[in-house]
Design a protein around this nucleic acid. Structure first.
Length: 428
RNA sequence: GGAGAGGUAGCGAAGUGGCCGUACCGCGCCCGACUCGAAAUCGGGUUACGGGCGAAUAACCCGUACGUGGGUUCGAAUCCCACCCUCUCCGCCA
């Protein structure tokens, strides 16, 4: 959420900077109308309340003195009626104004490039050698199914499309990748967290999933408004909602391995095969609460932590900067890391690292204060995948494949698999 | 699921219709005194948000907020209703 005062004073600038996102521009005239109406209602209401407060003191005084206060009482009855009407109107206007603010995305940073969509995202750097094959490399789902590890058909029976059952080596490999990633995060100082996978509406609003993107979420039926988390960013960032952190603690850093649940509404026909786009996948998420003056350095650091995982796995990748049209709702600047997938002959997103400035902190009311400081400030929140586990499994399979259909496992993962170095038809 | 207790500032905690949100008291924190310095002690200070303004996250005036939302009343932390959360006991349960 943008700062109310900032929006009031910079309506044109807000509209202009949001054009960079190439989305429908927010209706700034509507905001101006609501804000004006709100102030008018407050002005009238507060004048009456001040009058009422004075009268109440007078009534109390008269009653103590045993005098009659019927005339004031009668007058205040009317004042109170009017106040009630004004307050009711004000509640509606304030709700509308807040809703307007909650649906406006963050302002892209100056360094976020212009552009409409993926094709306009500039490449920052590439790392590693793409493996070369003297045969046509297969896609991961072929490899995984042939070796008996991935079963998409039974997943359809159990749940539906966009799910997968993994067996034996595939299940263990996924667990090995997860643990390896958590160990990397721990090495970089992140505190491991096991958060709830189900959260309430306030939590979803804090990070920006609500109110605008409800259709992307799985919502639980029942009396409580519960949602399945689409990423651990949601519970991790909201951990300190409503709290005041000590400045000396910053940066506060958390990591978590969680399943992520996404409805994938509107992605029909996209990546229908394999593990790339699933309703449920595991991800290790990294979250940082940073001092406002340091958040862009922190973004570089965070991206580096995600890259470290791929480097240790020996997987080739590139880092791109998302352009305005491709930028997420809460972010002002995002680096995507794309891993090389020889089976698809493409780079595919495996991590997304974002600086949200104070956008989420303001929504979730997360603050920090220096010892002895008068005022609490909003920290900046950052999040990044470190990394998506399912897609990492895809990359390990496609990059490690051999002519005979077996898979050579990256050395970094072998200790997590009891020394296993290769998966072939005989591997259980 | 049943019974009971509770939710007030960073923390503990008082307050049961107007003199108690200008929130008792204590802890913590900040400033000062004492001290070579510190501890202890003593004195002072210490909620947030919104409106009027404004360059100001400065003063000043006003308003609002005692878990959340309603209601009663001229006036609610206080009375009534609903809900949420925490704790204790009982039941059930991985």
């Amino acid at each position: 959420m943008l700062d109310l005062k900032f929006v009031q004073k910079n309506l044109d600038a807000v509209a202009r900077s949001l054009q960079k996102r190439c989305k429908t521009e927010p209706d700034v005239a509507e905001f101006a109308r609501l804000d004006e109406k709100r102030k008018a209602l407050i002005g009238e209401g507060e004048a009456l309340k001040a009058e009422r407060n004075q009268a109440s003191a007078e009534i109390a005084k008269k009653k103590r003195a045993g005098e009659d206060a019927a005339d004031i009482l009668a007058r205040m009855g009317q004042v109170s009626e009017r106040v009630k009407t004004l307050d009711t109107e004000l509640v509606d206007i304030e709700a509308a104004e807040r809703d307007w603010l909650l649906k406006v995305p963050n302002i892209p940073d100056e360094s976020t490039p212009e552009g409409r969509g993926e094709e306009d995202n500039p490449v920052q750097r590439t790392w590693g050698e793409k493996p070369s094959f003297d045969f046509k490399p297969k896609e991961h789902w072929e490899l995984g199914q042939a070796l008996g590890g991935l079963d998409f058909e039974r997943a359809v029976k159990l749940a539906g499309s966009r799910f997968c059952v993994s067996f034996g080596w595939a299940a263990r490999l996924e667990r090995a990748i997860s643990t390896f990633m958590l160990d990397c995060a721990a090495e970089n100082g992140y505190t491991e967290v096991r958060p709830p996978l189900i959260v309430n509406k306030a939590t979803m609003t804090g990070t920006g999933q609500l109110p605008k993107f409800e259709e992307d979420l799985f919502k639980l039926r029942g009396e409580q408004e519960y949602y399945l988390i689409p990423t651990a960013e949601v519970p991790l960032t909201n951990l300190h909602a409503g709290e005041v952190l000590d400045e000396a603690q910053l940066p506060v850093t958390y990591c978590a391995l969680t399943p992520c649940f996404r409805s994938e509404a509107g992605s029909y026909g996209k990546d229908t095969k394999g593990l790339i786009r699933q309703h449920q996948f595991y991800k290790v998420e990294l979250v940082r609460f940073a001092h406002p003056g340091k958040s862009f350095d922190e973004l570089e650091k965070l991206t580096g932590h995600a890259e470290m995982v791929l480097q240790r796995l020996g997987l080739s990748y590139r880092v791109i900067t998302l352009c305005g049209g491709d930028l997420g709702f809460s972010s002002c600047k995002t680096y995507d890391i794309e891993v090389w997938l020889p089976g698809q002959n493409k780079y595919r997103e495996i991590s997304s690292c974002s600086n949200c400035l104070d956008f989420q902190a303001r929504r979730a009311n997360i603050r920090f204060k220096a010892r002895g400081a008068k005022k609490a400030e909003f920290p900046h929140t950052l999040n990044g995948s470190g990394l998506a586990v399912g897609r990492t499994l895809v990359a390990v399979l496609e990059n490690g494949q051999q002519a005979d259909g077996s898979i050579v496992i990256p050395e970094a993962l072998r200790p997590y698999l009891g020394g296993l170095s290769r998966i072939d038809a005989a591997t259980k």
